[in-house]
Amino acid sequence: MKILYITNVDRRYAMMGAACRGLKAEGKLRADCDVLKVESDSRWTREWEEKLSSASLVLIRWMGNTIRTRFWDRCRFFMEKENIPYFMDAAGSAEGEAGRGLEHPAIQVLQQYAQYGGMENYKNFWLYAQSLLSGENERVKAPEKLCWAGIFHPDMDGKCMTAP
């Protein structure tokens, strides 16, 4: 059940990588799960085919004005040819989303974990993705909205107050 997360967003690459490494260190995520960085000049090579060939699920976060590049065209063709389930959340692009093999409710939950941010949501993103593949229906905590502005106190209900 190798899960790959691919992104061109530096902060997401760092945070998802930290969550992935932390879960692997705790023995909660398979060692072959990984986070991969795509650069604007990335080329589709045999190395990319080798990385993706044994994947059970590929989750992609793309930020930019288009996903219509040679790299993504070849990547998508490869995943579809090899029947690798994937989902691409392409924020800011004209195309929006692309994917195959995941049900819409599962995609929505994964998007919430990623959108809400924070290390716990990122760890739960991985655990939820893993539970989708394992069929074990592992109980993973639901995505939790984080307060981005307001008064924070760890003992307060909701941990944050935004209005008096």
Rank of each mutant, 00 (worst) to 15 (best):
residue 3 I to S: 00
residue 4 L to T: 00
residue 4 L to G: 02
residue 6 I to C: 04
residue 8 N to M: 07
residue 10 D to N: 13
residue 12 R to G: 10
residue 13 Y to R: 10
residue 16 M to S: 14
residue 22 G to I: 05
residue 24 K to R: 13
residue 24 K to W: 06
residue 25 A to N: 13
residue 25 A to S: 14
residue 25 A to F: 14
residue 26 E to G: 09
residue 26 E to A: 15
residue 28 K to S: 15
residue 30 R to D: 15
residue 35 V to G: 13
residue 39 E to C: 15
residue 44 W to R: 08
residue 45 T to R: 12
residue 45 T to D: 13
residue 47 E to P: 04
residue 48 W to R: 05
residue 49 E to F: 08
residue 51 K to T: 03
residue 55 A to Q: 02
residue 57 L to H: 03
residue 57 L to M: 05
residue 58 V to G: 02
residue 58 V to R: 01
residue 59 L to H: 06
residue 62 W to Y: 13
residue 63 M to D: 09
residue 64 G to N: 09
residue 65 N to Y: 15
residue 70 R to V: 10
residue 77 F to E: 13
residue 85 P to V: 02
residue 86 Y to V: 02
residue 90 A to T: 02
residue 91 A to V: 13
residue 92 G to K: 07
residue 93 S to V: 05
residue 94 A to E: 14
residue 95 E to R: 02
residue 98 A to K: 11
residue 98 A to E: 11
residue 99 G to A: 10
residue 100 R to E: 11
residue 102 L to T: 03
residue 104 H to L: 14
residue 105 P to Y: 06
residue 111 Q to G: 07
residue 112 Q to L: 09
residue 115 Q to W: 06
residue 115 Q to N: 08
residue 119 M to V: 03
residue 122 Y to R: 05
residue 127 L to V: 01
residue 128 Y to C: 02
residue 128 Y to K: 01
residue 131 S to M: 01
residue 132 L to C: 04
residue 138 E to H: 05
residue 138 E to Q: 07
residue 139 R to W: 06
residue 140 V to W: 01
residue 140 V to I: 07
residue 145 K to C: 05
residue 146 L to G: 03
residue 150 G to F: 02
residue 152 F to K: 00
residue 153 H to Y: 09
residue 153 H to V: 03
residue 153 H to E: 08
residue 155 D to E: 12
residue 157 D to W: 07
residue 161 M to F: 01
